[in-house]
């Protein structure tokens, strides 16, 4: 396993990402990862806040498309995330804070898709929002906040 991680990290591609003498390598990939974060967590915050009472006059069904933007942002971040992982594979793979970040992201995505099915897909006009949806919205905000904190803290933990 460790040899596999190292072979990724020290492949031509891994070395280019980590240390390529161009702003297009690590800095730009990191910037794209941050843009994706903004889209994923930002869209999530909007739909969560809508469920919790912000912008009540916006019909729930009209916000359904924000989930598509959220998944688009996630696709960007899954891609850039894999690339950033390759560039530091033999270190990141053993960071507990990285494992926690991945776990929080999976939980947040499951929460978002359950919330989408519960209230945003084919909503019944003027129906009150169920308590379970409000709980999911709070869970979503907490999970994304946790994922961001874990992601930031990865910069401070180096295991090698």
């Amino acid at each position: 396993m460790h040899e596999f991680l190292e072979s990724m990290q020290y492949s031509e591609f891994g070395l280019w990402v980590a240390g390529g003498d161009t702003i297009l390598a690590y800095p730009t990939i990191l910037a794209l990862h941050t843009l994706g974060l903004g889209l994923v967590v930002g869209m999530s915050a909007i739909v969560d806040c809508r469920v919790l009472g912000v912008g009540r006059s916006v019909p729930l069904g009209d916000l359904d498309r924000l989930f598509r933007v959220m998944w688009g942002g996630f696709a960007l971040n899954a891609t850039t995330g894999v690339v950033l992982f390759i560039a530091a594979a033999s270190d990141k793979a053993y960071q507990e804070i990285f494992h926690l970040k991945i776990a929080l992201i999976i939980l947040a995505l499951v929460t978002a898709s359950r919330l989408r099915r519960m209230v945003f897909r084919r909503p019944i006009p003027d129906a009150p929002i169920p308590q379970a949806a409000k709980t999911l919205a709070v869970a979503s905000l907490v999970l994304w906040t946790g994922a961001i904190v874990a992601g930031r803290l990865m910069a401070y933990t180096t295991t090698f």
Binding site: T34, L37, G38, V41, G42, M43, V69, G151, R152
Partner: peptide
């Protein structure tokens, strides 16, 4: 503050994009 800064970033970028 860095964690908060990224959380604020998500609120600004997400709401601005919308």
């Amino acid at each position: 503050c860095e964690s908060l800064h990224f959380l604020g970033l998500a609120l600004v970028i997400g709401t601005a994009a919308f």
